[in-house]
């Protein structure tokens, strides 16, 4: 399955690539069945850039993120195939000893639920300082100082460093988690739905702050979300995931304005249209296929309104539309095939 070039944005500046995922396959092997969570995905990311991994719940986004940290729970998780390269480290081959030097230093992660992500019996300052102490040869006091600085950087007054997580609200906890993740200015930051668990009013604040910090630290960001709005706000590149595969990837421009894949189209159609409030929402019919019994052909075929018999018969191969834009859809074997959104876009242009 040689689709390693599915998003190949970084070839021009090899040295700059800080994250490269190649042919990653992750399965959860349970007693009775095997969950095929991630099925052969590849992407890469340059320093300071941000990629959005978009998809429904269960599309394999979080598993991908955990794989980058080599934190896939094992058992039952098994990384069947693939390589992940973070700043020159072959993450999946590292021993525990080397891995712990990379985690938190070169690559960090922000988790979905800030309410449970902090150790309830440790002061937040100590939790941030721990990360500093692990990766930098500094004294305890110095590390704590850094922790206080980090707290202020994420918008929490430094004197609260001596408080416990339960004294913080959800939004502030997430800020603390972000402070921990950025404490050693990592090259790659993975954010797994960092705002899903937060109130809408807090979401924007946290995202703005992340954007600022990302620029400040020149960190590459992997933004995992099901919210296309977040992607538009934060990312330079987008990879749309469905049933463990990247079905469409490209620059923000490519995917948003030049949508190719029927699933991506479906995602956009299920969003409310700000310009035409009368327009009806078009949710994608059906549900994500059972990841233990993926259909033999295109996984999206059963829900796809353009699907033909050929779609269900064979696995789609990645198709490069432009240097940056790749799509995984069999229908494009027919050069005249256009999804609806594209037709209307083209009409618009002409």
């Amino acid at each position: 399955m040689g689709n390693e070039h599915i998003t190949n944005n970084g070839l021009a500046a090899e040295g700059d690539i800080v994250l490269e995922v190649k042919n990653l396959v992750v399965h959860y092997v349970l007693k009775k069945e095997t969950v095929e969570a991630v099925n052969d995905i590849s992407f890469s990311l340059k320093k300071g850039r941000a990629i959005g991994l978009v998809g429904e719940t269960g599309a394999g986004k979080t598993t991908t993120a955990l794989s980058i940290m080599n934190l896939v729970p094992d058992p039952p998780g098994v990384i069947k195939n693939g390589t992940i390269n973070v700043c020159g480290y072959d993450i999946l081959k590292l021993k525990h000893n080397e891995l712990k030097k990379v985690r938190g230093k070169d690559v960090s992660m922000i988790f979905q639920d800030p309410m449970t992500a902090l150790n309830p019996v440790m002061r937040v300052g100590d939790q941030i300082a721990e990360s500093v102490r692990l990766h930098e040869n500094v004294s305890k006091a110095k590390a704590y100082e850094r922790a206080v600085e980090m707290l202020e950087l994420v918008g929490i007054s430094g004197e609260r460093a001596s408080e416990f997580p339960h004294q913080f609200s959800g939004g502030m906890k997430q800020r603390v988690v972000i402070a921990i993740a950025l404490a050693c200015s990592p090259h790659v930051l993975i954010a797994d739905e960092p705002t899903t668990a937060l109130d809408v009013t807090i979401q924007a604040q946290v995202l703005d702050m992340m954007n600022d910090l990302k620029k400040k630290f020149n960190t590459a960001l992997v933004m995992i979300t099901h919210d296309l709005g977040v992607v538009a706000k934060m990312c330079d590149e987008v990879a749309v995931m469905y049933a463990g595969r990247i079905v469409e990837s490209g620059t923000l421009e490519d995917v948003f304005n030049d949508t190719m894949h029927p699933y991506t189209e479906g995602l956009f159609n299920s969003l409310p249209n700000l310009e035409n409030r009368e327009a009806e929402l078009e949710p994608i019919p059906g549900l994500m296929p059972d990841p233990t019994k993926l259909p033999p052909g295109c996984s999206f075929a059963p829900r796809c309104k353009y699907a033909t018999e050929a779609c269900s018969a064979k696995r789609p191969e990645p198709r490069k539309v432009s240097d940056t834009h790749t799509v995984l859809c069999t229908r494009y074997d027919d050069p005249s095939f256009r999804i609806k959104r594209r037709q209307s876009n083209e009409q618009h242009v002409s």
């Binding site: 940290m69 985690r103 960090s108 988790f111 692990l134």
Partner: peptide
């Protein structure tokens, strides 16, 4: 989940057990 956070920070497995898990 906070053990995962600690792992993501690069805390060694031994310290995860002794400091973070046992502490709680």
């Amino acid at each position: 989940d906070y053990l995962r956070t600690a792992r993501a920070k690069g805390v060694s497995e031994r310290m995860i057990i002794i400091k973070h898990a046992l502490g709680n």
